[in-house]
Computed example of a mutant assay.
Amino acid sequence: MVSEIKKKAFWRAVVAEFLAMTIFVFISIGSALGFQFPIGTNKLTPVQDNVKVSLAFGLAIATMAQCVGHVSGAHLNPAVTLGCLLSCQISILKAVMYMIAQCLGAIVAAAILQGVTSSLEANSLGLNSLAAGINSGQGLGIEIIVTFQLVLCVLATTDRRRNDVTGSAPLAIGLSVALGHLIAIDYTGCGMNPARSFGSAVVARNFTHHWIFWVGPMLGGAAAALIYDFILFPRTSELTDRVKVCTNGQVEEYDLDGDDSARVEMKPK
């Protein structure tokens, strides 16, 4: 782990997660908060279009994945990072640093949005909450399912063992994010990204039912990684090799001769 910290590529990847997460949250939540400017009146009326918001989330993820995928793998979601960790694609240290960077990026973006939309009445900053008639158990189940399909998509489209993926991995993942929002946004606001939920909760100072938007996505991401890695497309790596990756990172991720080039995690074979 000590050798990993000393690499410039490690810190570039962490910074990339922070910057990409900031931009992603600003664009996606900003689309949910948006203003409507009626012709002939000065009143500001907040509106939300579920299709517009879902597409904004999906396209923002796809764009950021294309921008920083070659630097950090563009996880942009603690649940995805956990899935990659359980799949032994990154080290524990890198996973922790990614999650911290993602949460900080979400907080910064939510704080900026608070200033930009300060005149918006009842501004929740995209805070996730349970819809009327939805209990915590149902909300948890929804978050597990939508995150499961996202992490499964990430692992399948970025698996370097595959040679049949010819399309765009970032676009496929973006569509998966959009699909999750189209399904869950009316029930929970779709909290499939714990860091995005955390940023809004911190700035809005409202943590009601917030545990659901951590436990649900993390369980969904973990389940997707374990099922993909051990049932759907098992890896042949020995346990000792998997442990080495979790403690020291991928061997090919950092050149042993000192080259700091980062491994391209988001690009399919």
Rank of each mutant, 00 (worst) to 15 (best):
L104E: 02
L104R: 01
L104T: 02
A106N: 12
A106V: 07
V108T: 08
A109E: 04
A109T: 00
A111S: 14
I112R: 06
I112P: 07
I112D: 10
L113V: 09
Q114C: 05
Q114L: 07
G115L: 08
S118T: 12
S118M: 13
S118A: 15
S119D: 15
L120W: 12
L120F: 13
L120V: 15
E121N: 04
E121G: 08
A122M: 00
A122L: 05
N123Y: 11
G126S: 09
N128H: 02
S129N: 10
A132I: 09
G133N: 12
I134H: 10
S136L: 14
S136Y: 13
Q138K: 14
Q138M: 15
G139R: 02
I142Y: 07
I145Y: 09
T147V: 02
L150A: 06
L150R: 00
L150K: 01
L152K: 03
L152Y: 11
C153R: 00
L155T: 04
A156I: 04
T157N: 00
T158I: 01
D159T: 05
R160Q: 10
R160S: 12
N163H: 12
D164H: 12
V165F: 13
T166D: 07
T166W: 10
G167N: 13
S168A: 08
P170A: 11
L171D: 06
A172H: 03
A172M: 08
G174R: 13
L175Q: 03
S176E: 08
S176H: 03
L179A: 11
G180Y: 02
H181F: 08
H181K: 09
I185M: 11
D186G: 14
Y187V: 10
T188Y: 12
G189E: 09
G189R: 06
C190W: 02
M192H: 00
N193L: 03
P194S: 10
R196K: 14
R196E: 10
F198Q: 07
S200H: 05
S200E: 03
V202H: 07
V202R: 05
V203E: 01
N206W: 10
F207D: 13
F207Q: 12
F207C: 14
T208W: 11
T208G: 14
H209K: 10
H209E: 13
H209N: 15
H209D: 15
W211S: 04
W211N: 06
W211A: 08
I212Y: 09
I212K: 06
I212G: 09
F213Q: 00
W214C: 14
P217T: 06
P217N: 09
